[in-house]
């Protein structure tokens, strides 16, 4: 475990943390829960900066947004009544799906999950769907849309401080549709959020994870739905469009055809779940 590790620091402020990071590239890493880093034996890691003492463990609800601190644990997200009772309720569900072990969720943080994510990240998928942004401190603080952060995947020596999830101005409904393996681990997942304006789909966002590459929006489905009346037939048409537009790879786990079928199923399932919530509301 981190055989060349020589130093460990627990800064009390973001400025001190940034100062500690400003050293030889790659030799100083940030740690919060450490559930992924502690398992590696990367010989280039010489010092760790533990940010668990920074005041970044919070879930706040402001007028038009939710703000979630980077060191908020996945279990805190999963149990959050603020998020659970809002249209962002897919975040607690995604946090639960991110790791089946509560012992890991008690330690794993949102920031760590986002920075180290791979091609399967249910949390990322949910946050893309909700149009979240991340705020990064490092010199000047700036916010980055989640999809750009995902593409850049580098903090440029900065510290991920918080995730901002905007609220919608019209009623919106979100759903999460995972395909789980026999250990309860998601293999593929679709997150969807729809808004309703004059009885029609409005500002639909839908994203998929667990396919080749990083989590991504399924724009063809969004285009198919927006402006059209809410009903099951339109949802099936949108799922058909996803089937046609989606071309996953064939590998040892599944064929392209199987993945297309599953994609069709989970897109339909997520959107029908949203529709059911709309019906309950009216």
């Amino acid at each position: 475990m981190l055989s060349n590790l020589k130093g460990y620091y627990r800064p009390k402020s973001i400025a001190t943390a940034l100062g500690l990071l400003d050293k030889e590239a790659g030799s100083v890493l940030l740690i919060a829960g450490g559930t992924k880093l502690n398992l590696t034996d990367d010989p280039s890691v010489k010092e760790l900066v533990d940010i668990t003492c920074l005041p970044l463990n919070y879930i706040k609800e402001n007028l038009g947004e939710f703000r979630i601190g980077a060191t908020t644990t996945l279990q805190c997200l999963a149990e959050s009544p603020v998020l659970g009772s809002s249209s962002a309720h897919i975040i607690p569900k995604a946090a639960l799906l991110s790791n089946h072990s509560r012992m890991i969720r008690n330690v794993s943080t949102l920031g760590g999950e986002l920075v180290t994510t791979g091609s399967l990240s249910v949390l990322y998928c949910a946050l893309i769907t909700l149009q979240a942004q991340v705020r990064i401190a490092g010199g000047e603080e700036f916010a980055l849309p989640m999809n750009i952060f995902l593409d850049k995947k580098g903090l440029g020596g900065g510290v991920l401080v918080e995730t901002i999830v905007p609220k919608t101005t019209v009623p919106s409904y979100s759903a999460i549709a995972p395909i789980l393996n026999d250990r309860g681990k998601p293999m593929l997942c679709v997150c969807a959020r729809i808004s309703v304006k004059k009885g029609a789909f409005h500002d639909t966002k839908i994203a998929i994870t667990g396919t080749a590459g990083m989590p991504k929006r399924i724009r063809v489905v969004e285009k198919e739905l927006n402006g059209r009346q809410l009903n099951e037939a339109i949802i099936i048409q949108a799922a058909d469009a996803a089937y046609e537009a989606y071309h996953p790879a064939t590998d040892k786990f599944a064929s392209e055809e199987y993945r297309k079928e599953v994609c069709h199923l989970v897109v339909k399932r997520a959107l029908l779940d949203c529709l059911e919530q709309v019906m309950e509301d009216f």
């Binding site: 460990y8 450490g34 760790l48 509560r102 012992m103 008690n106």
Partner: peptide, 20 residues
């Protein structure tokens, strides 16, 4: 598993330094 500030965690993936 141990209880770390009241929460169950896996001590095999915690550095001792994190227990300060």
């Amino acid at each position: 598993v141990i209880l770390f500030n009241g929460q169950a965690v896996n001590s095999c993936i915690q550095l001792t330094a994190q227990a300060e």
